[in-house]
Design a protein around this nucleic acid. Structure first.
Length: 890
RNA sequence: GGGCGAUUGGCUCAGCUGGUUAGAGCGCACGGUUCACAUCCGUGAGGUCACUGGUUCGAAUCCAGUAUCGCCCACCA
């Protein structure tokens, strides 16, 4: 006989959870089997690799909870599961962080130079790389850490080279001059997605451009007035544009204006794009510093003159203003124009200004030569995959958002003028031929003229971080090689992330995945919402409203946090995380712990079926088994449908209300009744242990630690209940037995009675501890049988004794009613003090009966409603009438 | 300027392939030191599901419109 391990009174999550995690690691529980189990379906989850420099925040915690819950569920289902973890090198973010560190050390990117900077970066990586993984492990992430990857490792590097070369060979990559988003602080190009638009209050200035006289000099008495929000770009103007049908300016088209300060001749052109009603109706055209103007200039064959350098300072083309910062130049130019009398007006103007996503600096459109991926053909395929259902987005309304973006996509500027990242595998020969190579050590010779490698120089730009993360689902499995992992686990199953990186990452994975592997990289995209503070605000360090998940985990445990992050949520919807929600998670963990403590502490001396015990299960046992069967069915359906919120609610309900509030209370009755035999007690206990084991398995995916800890103790106390699996993480997901409707109805009937009687006690003002006699008039013979068998539960749970069953007894006014019959206490409050319960109930029943009768009397209802609905109504009517009959005349 | 989402008891949210008397947690009121748990137990109050129309035997759920809030996308200086 085994001795029961006592569970300590308090669940010490901070101590238990890491120990449990160690145990899983030691058992290699997260790693897929060497070979896939026969008949097992693969289930592969894709997680956004967190930034290497990032610290764990609640968003990560929410991601991890969802992913881990799904992977654990599928692991228990016996699927061939893989969750491959990793980190992203996050080039711009990492440089941002390192630059700050260097600044404190009195160094900078410039002072170190590329080579030493990168050495320093790798050193920094060595220090920080493991941090985020460790933090994820504290949350219980059951990822296969033996396969952990980094987007800067050689596997990724090779995938990047190969993917880029294939894109090039397919004609989907080009290098060309274009106006790109330039951050004058980060000193790099950024993509449209990283250029975040914000509304700002600006000013619209009206400036006179004097017309050119026949002698070539500006006419002091004739001018065209242009409106601009950016006077400093005037230095780069190459034209003035008006609308072709604008009568005010019709005579000017074809003539020239003279640019202030620089004296440049500006043709006055007509273009439909000019809005007549805006400003003065005349626009200065600065092709090198404005996207609209750039397009217009192309249409009219106008030159583009760059007047700002990489720091957004005026360059030598700006003459007097050279060297000034763009805003200083603006001020100076306005002042001088004013002095000349050519600044003729200004008005407040709401406008949209692009900012660098990383550092907030105002983006400067900049003309430069860049690498682009031609995304239209890629986007079309990626769009078709979702339209045609090969990849599904949950929640589905994001499919429209995705489609809209894919339809309006612009070419992707993939080059970055940064150092930390994958260098673009392009080489130039002295004749400017381009050679793209996917070889680790570059090309042997120029692809066009055959010059040797020694004469080629490699592109210095690196790739946008999202280019390598876009290859994540397959680059981590060994692509471009057809590795066993790739064949076994690709395409993957569920890609989980928050909706804020739908375009950045999900869209790129879809496009690159389809291009590189000819298949969708995953069949489901699960988009979570964002975690917000209790007031619905985004959490941010500057606002000081950030909840640190690690602190929370130390306080209340990872399980409690996980539960709080999933309970009551729905895919794609933001959620506010409140202290009350976290308390709820903590309380639930505590509840489970104590329920287990109760079960384990009450093991009778003889408790194993091997002791030769054989008794038919009691009503509460049949009931809880059926309730658990129902919960298992629902939880299974909900997890399969990715309804994590529903799943959490299901397990919470069955654990707390069914198992603890009713079943364990009934178990107490049976364990403690004096006339029970050892065999009966043993049977009662082992069924409590057995149903606890089912409950633990249902809860494990969401609350792995506390359930595993209890499982360990339960296995010692009752090997029969827990089964053969030494670790819950590897235990099979429950298979629900058939529902026992009869037991459910019978026990629910008893519960209704108990509730009714408790209610009576409150109304009669009976002190809580007092035992009172109870009379029950059973509804019928069946009810009578149930009541006979259930008397002891009603007694204990309603605190009534003795119970007299008397079908003939006439109910008094204050009475509890239910499907099993009517029950009442002998204590009746003075008449008039309370409503006549019988009368009230009878009236209620009459009203309901009337309603249902009418419904059933409605011919179109009976004809058109589904048979099941009609039958249900008929059944309800029958039950209502039975109860009404039983109440008698009132 | 487009598009998407939300609006359900005091608060935070489920429910929305149309079908019992719309649920939960927190909060609130009342009662509880019964040997699992006061991080608890019991009982209760509290909602014309934003508004207006429509479809239907039947609408919180579907359709149209309105209002308020939020988010995303967007090259009018």
């Amino acid at each position: 006989m085994t001795t029961t391990r006592e569970l300590p009174p308090r669940y010490d999550a901070a101590a238990v959870e890491p120990a449990i995690y160690e145990r899983w690691m030691a058992a290699d529980a997260f790693r897929p089997a060497e070979t896939p189990p026969a008949g097992a379906e693969p289930f592969v989850i894709i997680q956004p690799p967190p930034n290497v420099t990032g610290a764990l925040h609640l968003g990560h915690a929410a991601r991890t909870t969802v992913e881990d819950t799904l992977i654990r569920y599928h692991r228990m289902r016996g699927d061939d599961t893989l969750w491959l973890p990793g980190v992203d090198h996050a080039s711009i973010a990492a440089q941002f962080v390192l630059d700050r560190i260097l600044a404190e050390e009195g160094e900078s990117r410039a002072s170190l130079g590329r080579e030493r900077y990168l050495e320093r970066m790798w050193q920094f990586m060595a220090e920080t790389r493991g941090v985020i993984g460790t933090q994820h492990r504290r949350l219980g992430a059951s990822a296969d850490w033996s396969r952990e990857r980094f987007t800067m490792d050689e596997g990724s590097a090779r995938a990047v080279r190969v993917a880029f070369k294939r894109l090039w060979d397919a004609g989907l990559v080009y290098r060309g001059e274009a106006l790109v988003n330039w951050c004058p602080r980060c000193l790099t190009t950024i993509s449209d997605l990283e250029n975040v638009h914000r509304d700002e209050a600006g000013t619209l200035w009206m400036i006179r451009y004097h017309l050119e006289r026949p002698d070539g000099l500006p006419d002091p008495d004739a001018w065209v007035t242009v409106a601009t929000t950016r006077p400093e770009t005037l230095l780069g103007d190459t034209a003035v544009a008006v609308h072709p049908e604008d009568e005010r300016y019709a005579a000017l088209v074809g003539r020239h204006a003279v640019l202030p300060f620089l004296g440049r001749r500006l043709p006055i052109v007509a273009d439909e794009h000019v809005e007549r009603g805006f400003g003065t109706g005349a626009v200065k055209i600065t092709p090198a510093h404005d996207a609209d103007d750039y397009e217009l200039a192309k249409r009219h064959g106008l030159p583009a003159i760059t007047v700002l350098d990489e720091h957004a300072r005026v360059n030598e083309a700006g003459d007097d203003f050279a060297g000034m910062d763009r805003y200083a130049a603006r001020k100076e130019i306005l002042a001088r124009l004013d002095a000349l009398g050519d600044l003729v007006g200004e008005q407040a103007h709401q406008m949209v200004v692009g900012h660098c996503d990383r550092c907030g600096t105002v983006i400067e459109p900049r003309l430069s030569v860049q690498w682009f991926v031609r995304v239209k053909p890629l986007a079309e395929r990626a769009l078709a995959s979702v339209r045609e259902g090969r990849t599904r987005i949950v929640p589905s309304h994001f499919e429209k958002v995705y489609a809209h973006w894919m339809e309006n996509i612009h070419d992707w500027a993939v080059g970055r003028q940064l150092w930390w990242g994958h260098r673009i595998p392009a080489w130039y020969c002295p004749d400017d031929h381009i050679t793209i190579s996917d070889a680790a050590d570059g090309p042997d010779a120029c692809a066009e003229c055959g010059r040797p490698a020694s004469e080629l120089r490699q592109e210095t730009d690196i790739f946008d971080t999202w280019f390598s993360s876009g290859l994540w689902p397959f680059s981590t499995l060994g692509w471009p090689d057809q590795t066993p992992d790739l064949q076994r686990f690709y395409p993957t199953s569920v890609m989980e992330t928050a909706y804020d990186i739908l375009f950045f990452w999900v869209a790129r994975m879809m496009m690159l995945g389809l291009f590189c592997t000819d298949t969708e990289p995953f069949h489901t995209v699960y988009l979570s919402g964002m975690i917000r503070d209790p007031y619905g605000q985004k959490m941010s360090k500057t606002k000081g409203n950030v909840v640190d998940p690690l602190e929370t985990v130390d306080e209340i445990g990872a399980d409690a946090l996980r539960f709080a992050l999933v309970n009551g949520t729905t895919p794609g919807a933001d959620q506010r995380l409140t202290a009350a929600k976290l308390d709820g998670g903590r309380n639930f963990t505590n509840k489970l712990w104590n329920a287990a403590r109760f079960v384990l502490a009450n093991r009778p001396p003889r408790s194993e079926p091997s002791d030769g015990i054989s008794t038919s299960p009691s009503l509460p046992v049949r009931w809880i088994r059926s309730r658990l069967a129902d919960a298992t069915e629902r939880a299974t359906r909900q997890l399969d449908a990715l309804d994590l919120g529903g799943y959490a609610a299901t397990v919470y309900e069955v654990a707390w209300s069914d198992y603890c509030d009713w079943f364990l209370e009934a178990v107490k009755v049976d364990l403690r009744r004096e006339d029970a035999t050892d065999a009966e007690r043993a049977a009662t206990w082992s069924s409590a242990a057995e149903s606890l084991a089912v409950l633990l398995r249902l809860l494990h995916p969401l609350m792995p630690f506390v359930t595993e800890e209890i499982w360990q103790a339960l296995r010692e106390a009752s090997p029969a209940a827990a089964g053969d699996e030494p670790l819950l993480i590897a235990a099979p997901w429950p298979v629900p037995p058939a529902r026992d409707r009869e037991a459910e109805a019978a026990f629910d009937g008893l519960a209704t009675l108990v509730r009714g009687v408790r209610n009576l006690r409150m109304e009669a003002g009976v002190p809580a501890g007092t035992w009172l006699p109870l009379t029950i008039a059973p509804a019928d013979a069946g009810a009578s049988d149930v009541l006979h068998g259930g008397t002891r539960y009603v007694e204990a749970l309603a605190r009534v004794r003795p119970i007299k069953l008397d079908p003939e007894a006439a109910p008094p006014p204050l009475v509890a009613t239910g499907p099993l019959g009517a029950a009442w206490l002998e204590v009746q409050p003075p008449s008039g003090d309370v409503a006549d319960r019988r009368r009230v109930r009878a009236a209620e029943l009459d009203a309901n009966i009337e309603r249902v009768r009418q419904l059933l009397g409605n011919a179109s209802f009976v004809e058109r409603a589904p048979a099941a609905v009609v039958d249900r109504e008929r059944e309800r009517l029958r039950a209502l009438e039975a109860e009404r009959t039983q109440l008698g005349d009132v």
